[in-house]
Design a protein around this nucleic acid. Sequence first.
DNA 1: GCCCGCTGAACTGCATGCAATTGAGGCGCT
DNA 2: AGCGCCTCAATTGCATGCAGTTCAGCGGGC
Lengths: 252, 252
Amino acid sequence: MASRSASSTAATSDKVGVICRALRRAIIEQALEPGVKLPEDSLGERFGVSRTIARHALGQLAAEGLVELRRNRIAVVATPSWQEARDAFDIRIELERLVVRQLAGKLTKGQVAELNAHVDAEDRARDGTDAVSIRLATEFHILLANMTSSPILVRYVSEVAYRCCLTLSLYSRPHSSECAINEHRAIIAALVKGDEAKVMGLMHSHLDSVANRALVAPAPRRGRDLLEILAPYAEEGERGRVVKLPKVIRTR
Amino acid sequence: MASRSASSTAATSDKVGVICRALRRAIIEQALEPGVKLPEDSLGERFGVSRTIARHALGQLAAEGLVELRRNRIAVVATPSWQEARDAFDIRIELERLVVRQLAGKLTKGQVAELNAHVDAEDRARDGTDAVSIRLATEFHILLANMTSSPILVRYVSEVAYRCCLTLSLYSRPHSSECAINEHRAIIAALVKGDEAKVMGLMHSHLDSVANRALVAPAPRRGRDLLEILAPYAEEGERGRVVKLPKVIRTR
DNA sequence: GCCCGCTGAACTGCATGCAATTGAGGCGCT
DNA sequence: AGCGCCTCAATTGCATGCAGTTCAGCGGGC
């Protein structure tokens, strides 16, 4: 797999990265729900690349825990167990405490503005779908991690945050994540003030309450058509020839 | 990349996993030093597989941060910067505190025996090469992580520990890691006693001192022949046909 | 003698082809 | 009708081939 530079799947114009990002986003927005099948050729066709590339992308996502790969079987969107979800949140708490510890009192004006703008966007998205709210909330944390400019930390926080996000789509009841916005604002304020202990505590309880609100009970899911689902995710750089979508495959 | 089940590169008999494990071990034992080139075909030939598979393995290792992949360029063993090394240790400290917190007072007799046996092995390896000592020390921490039976935690701890290990080969002076053995024993003792706070503190200072002992100054490295270096790492399951080693390629 | 541009071998990026595996539907048996 | 076997289409595992990129080494100009 391949060809994303060391840290996250970043370098534009490598096709593996494009597919990874598209699928990642589709997964965390719950367009692709846990258990949905991801056949290599359908993916390849959808993105206008060969199976080889689709395969690389799936491998990458499997390494991140978003996709499950079993030998000789069709890849599926991962279905983390309740325990794994809990573990992921525990790890996330520690990592994000590290993030805010490094950031406390060190944010530039521009960074603060960026964070505020993001939270404003979260606010505006309240009217929209649940999935978008969840994605934005997750991205707030990733934005924060990015400001540490520690590539390793960024990668781990992103990964575990995406995993948690996936989890939410499995176990949380609808509309349970809205109140988090105020907590985000409080974290920004504490970061600006520079009180390390305070902000670490805030982050800890924020994530803890998200986890507790979320991890309640599983719910069954309906199947949908893969190619159709992916439609809004295929652009990303406008590679022009995102080809036909030929046969329609009922997945799952 | 592919075909290792969700967590670490595990399932035996998938060729990608075999290569990953071999390279990982070669890297952390410093047989493959940072900067050494890893051409896909040489790897493939060495392990008796096609470039495709070698490529998958490299991708996997790149995702773990052990290998650097630049588009259209030969992959090389990663050369983490001093700052990245420091970051990796910071993350590692938090993660391993989580490990011992979960483990304190919960180890079975069998697990304690296993840990003691491992430390004994570390002791015996004192006479051997530096590289083996470092590998064993790293594996102690991974062994510990495994006992949490949290796949996610295991994966992250392993990854970051390997990274730190790689770092040591770049920045540490020789024979700086020996005294860690006693600290390992102390950690086991505290885990058995079940004092969470104590063992978290021990682990913290242990890793902190390893980091501080280690991160001193870079040193230049000599080049060696890739195929020759890999010889001792090629077995792993005895796939019989690990083929010829035809042309000899000076790497680096 | 030194620097720069050129050329070809080495290598990667990607697609495709073939063999092996899987599992879903159909058929017969009870 | 219900149950199990068998067959075949769908799909993965892997190797190989071709095109494009990189780089090392060489030759010419200054």
